[in-house]
Write a protein that binds this DNA or RNA. Structure first.
Lengths: 111, 111
DNA sequence: TAACTATATTGCTATATCGGCATATTGTCA
DNA sequence: TGACAATATGCCGATATAGCAATATAGTTA
């Protein structure tokens, strides 16, 4: 039961949709979004949380921000990022359910 | 109201999720999935429907199939592909809604 | 078997982007 | 102002993948 929008989608709409998926297509960016799930965090703490380097984290946070998925708030010389679009969690959950189904089905092949 | 799975997700789970998004991150693959929305189609018809080349269509169909999103059925010398995972439409709809919200909000900035 | 059709594969070039490193920028505080 | 801390940016080499063109493969039919 999928709520449908206008079909077929315009070419430009398709590109925007694909672009959104592209933003989410890197594990580190999924991790960043996850680390912001329970509230805003600054770059240093995020860097520790996901065990990456600060420049790399900053770079990917910027991409997420430009995509409108997170917000940036500077306070003194520390910068807090926060989730701007809760739908990303919905997307992850839908994918998780799909993957789970798939693996369950596959394991069923062996009784 | 987002149904939560186990958090934080394991590193391997994050990679699988990102991988699923990566499959959906190309406009042509979104188009392919759309063209299969109303039922199975063969490669030639799909190629016409999305105005691409046959080798390119075959390549991307293969990727979608390997990701478990579509199925392949050969009948004679024509091959029919069909949707295997309806969740992709759900994903597109969630993204569409998010994008629509974003643009609505932005247009609101101008009264 | 030969010709034909439908689909898949391979080799290629061009482009995009990742992570790492060095460094620039900006804010704070002594 | 100078030293320091937090964050951002620019450059790099390596890798991935898109689309194209040519060709291979497999099924059909005469």
């Amino acid at each position: 039961m999928v709520k449908q929008n206008k079909w077929p989608l315009a070419k430009e709409a398709v590109e925007l949709i694909a672009g959104r998926f592209k933003v989410l297509s890197e594990p580190i960016r999924i991790q960043l979004l996850q680390s912001l799930h329970d509230g805003p965090m600054n770059v240093t703490d995020i860097t520790r949380a996901i065990a990456s380097t600060q420049p790399n984290v900053s770079k990917h946070l910027k991409m997420l921000q430009e995509a409108g998925l997170i917000t940036r708030r500077q306070q003194g010389n520390t910068v807090y990022y926060a989730i701007a679009d809760q739908s990303v969690y919905k997307l992850c959950d839908v994918v998780c359910a799909s993957l789970k189904d798939k693996f369950t089905e596959q394991s069923g092949l062996f009784g």
